[in-house]
Design a protein around this nucleic acid. Sequence first.
DNA 1: TTATAAACGAGACGGTACGTCGAGTCTTAAC
DNA 2: GTTAAGACTCGACGTACCGTCTCGTTTATAA
Lengths: 221, 221, 221, 221
Amino acid sequence: MQCSPTGPRKGRARLTGRTGRPRSAAADAAILDATRAALVELGWGKLTMGDVAARAKVAKTTLYRRWAGKNELVLDAVAVLFDELELPDRGSLKDDIEGVVLQFAALLARPETKTALMAVVAESTTDDALRTRIREAVVERQKRLVVQGRQRAQRRGELPPDGGGPEGAAAAARSVDLIFDVIAGAVVHRALVSGEPVDAAWAARFTTLLLAGLGGLETRD
Amino acid sequence: MQCSPTGPRKGRARLTGRTGRPRSAAADAAILDATRAALVELGWGKLTMGDVAARAKVAKTTLYRRWAGKNELVLDAVAVLFDELELPDRGSLKDDIEGVVLQFAALLARPETKTALMAVVAESTTDDALRTRIREAVVERQKRLVVQGRQRAQRRGELPPDGGGPEGAAAAARSVDLIFDVIAGAVVHRALVSGEPVDAAWAARFTTLLLAGLGGLETRD
Amino acid sequence: MQCSPTGPRKGRARLTGRTGRPRSAAADAAILDATRAALVELGWGKLTMGDVAARAKVAKTTLYRRWAGKNELVLDAVAVLFDELELPDRGSLKDDIEGVVLQFAALLARPETKTALMAVVAESTTDDALRTRIREAVVERQKRLVVQGRQRAQRRGELPPDGGGPEGAAAAARSVDLIFDVIAGAVVHRALVSGEPVDAAWAARFTTLLLAGLGGLETRD
Amino acid sequence: MQCSPTGPRKGRARLTGRTGRPRSAAADAAILDATRAALVELGWGKLTMGDVAARAKVAKTTLYRRWAGKNELVLDAVAVLFDELELPDRGSLKDDIEGVVLQFAALLARPETKTALMAVVAESTTDDALRTRIREAVVERQKRLVVQGRQRAQRRGELPPDGGGPEGAAAAARSVDLIFDVIAGAVVHRALVSGEPVDAAWAARFTTLLLAGLGGLETRD
DNA sequence: TTATAAACGAGACGGTACGTCGAGTCTTAAC
DNA sequence: GTTAAGACTCGACGTACCGTCTCGTTTATAA
């Protein structure tokens, strides 16, 4: 996991020298579980801190000692779900992409994810710290999937190797970013904005488009 | 415009025989202007109905007589901005796409748009009526840009004409949907989730990918 | 009846010279009936002008054209009930008093009367015009009962005749006022404040006290 | 004092084991003071809970945590004033009664008392819990004055002693109730309904009537 | 017969207060 | 120094009535 606590405990290493009753580790897990459960039942808009505390059988003070507010709490509760995504080797780049697209779509179909992700991103447009936290906790972490798929395809010979030198590395990073935005953006938009199902047929057509596009991209960049 | 009022007035057609003082048309405009101004200054999260009413010099009840709540009001206030998008003819499909991508990015860069769009979509995950309204007011309306660009490219010979018969029409519709999700999704994700600028360079690289992808798509579907 | 309308119509005599549609007499009756019905069902506190208008099948404007507000409307609706009180000749002062006490108690037992009377009096503590109107419409009108009973008792020889001259008249007026306050006050207090029933036994005991008191009063004043 | 709080705290005895932050005692006093001040300035009709909260420098929720509504709050604020009434020994029953009548009249002349008392009684006609509360907080408490005056007069020999046995006790209680209704009723009616001053002259005449009446009553009951 | 003028129904309007809810803080006693 | 409990301040919520207004319509007299 990542970064839950915010209170005075955070800074001072847990190594030594502190006194008093230690924070309950079980409480952390109970709170995050309760948060996800509340998201499922109520959605972002109706979720309240008091309700989460009650579900977790914890006092509200305990919540606020560890998270700055609803945004941060929900982000942590949801971010961990994204770490379950992985890129199983299905033998070809096309199948790998289709697989991860469907995995991602399945994740976005979960009520806690779909309601929380957009809401937290919306809040982040007026909260820089939150935006940073989202990028650390979700965006950058999941780019690993693109990087991994690319490397695997290069090993298979489906994609040309990166160009050498700092120039080549920068180009590779730009490609990763672009591909990540295209994949994540298209799936999110299809699922949440257009409100159409991301099924195997759509995934196949999208992957076809993307692979052809990659070909065009590589020849130039 | 589209669909502001919600109250009992909506149903009964305004055709004849209605009694009572008519609703003020000026109030509608003042309210939507005030809503956009409040979005700019406060963002979705801090915007309140009372504040909007005060800015519009209107009673809170007048707001609630016309819109069911914050979601519906903000949606109407923002949806009209999307109608300003257009597809100027720049001579080639590539330039047309780059142009609309940059226009769209500019729209998403406006504070009222960026804070409102994601928030309303987030709310729509737990509100079916709202989801429908978003699709009518934004999603379906803007597909016209894709349709128009496609037709223009076909006229220019940059894209093959649609296949004949109902089969061909369905394939064309699927293509439009897919392309729309890819373009809108990628731009939104780049701008709001990744938080990176959508500048001319990015637009060019994205368009290159998309055009190559379209080629791959057309040969098969 | 007394004084319902307040609007511009009030001043100019109805005799001549006005044009336009005349006020509906039926509406007046319907409104006052509706007011009493609403008092019974809802009590003073929950009664609303809109509700009265709806019950009377009349527009709110029609109410406000005739009465200045809730206080005035309710006062008029209730005052007329007090005019039903009368002093039947039962042959002796004691029986006459007991009769009127029980009549008055029965009137106060009606839900519309009990809830309205106290409330309007309460409002009149901060509204001089209302206080005047109450005195005209209720208090002074009902003193006739005391005057009448006194005269009848004097005719029977149960009470000595008034003293002569302005002196005697003033003393008589003072007596009437005092007796009225004692009777009305005791019955109202018993019924509404103490919340005990005003039954025949109580009326008999009260009348005994009052009659003995009157004897003491007459010998001196 | 008596009975201010209504919330969950009321039930569970304050004996032991309760947790959480205790209610502020200072807030209670500030609220009741503010209520009386608002009654003086605004009268019952214009008094609002929000205004009382603001005057007491307390949140509106704190009011509602302790009192169910305006009726209960105002009753508590005013009831305490009635406890200031007392029956100084002036040497004779007549003087004692005149004294307490004038004291009571002075209390009713205070703006907070006059506007609140009638209004709360009016509300109590459609609210049984409120009626009970009024009787406990005001009516029954002030009967002590009648009881005390009666005992004192009996000690002085101005009134015969109570009859013996349960019979005599019941008769005494009936007398107390009757006398209380007559005194309180007459004074309230004179002051608030008739709107005439309760001055020494009126008090003397009323007391004369009452004392003579008591004589008649005692010989029979 | 036609104007004129007021009453009328309907319902939108600007306000004010309501009573509730949630956020986030603070104060206790217990651990 | 954390914990549970719950009171606290603050601010927004959405609703209910208020009393006024603006319509179109109806119903009388007066010209």
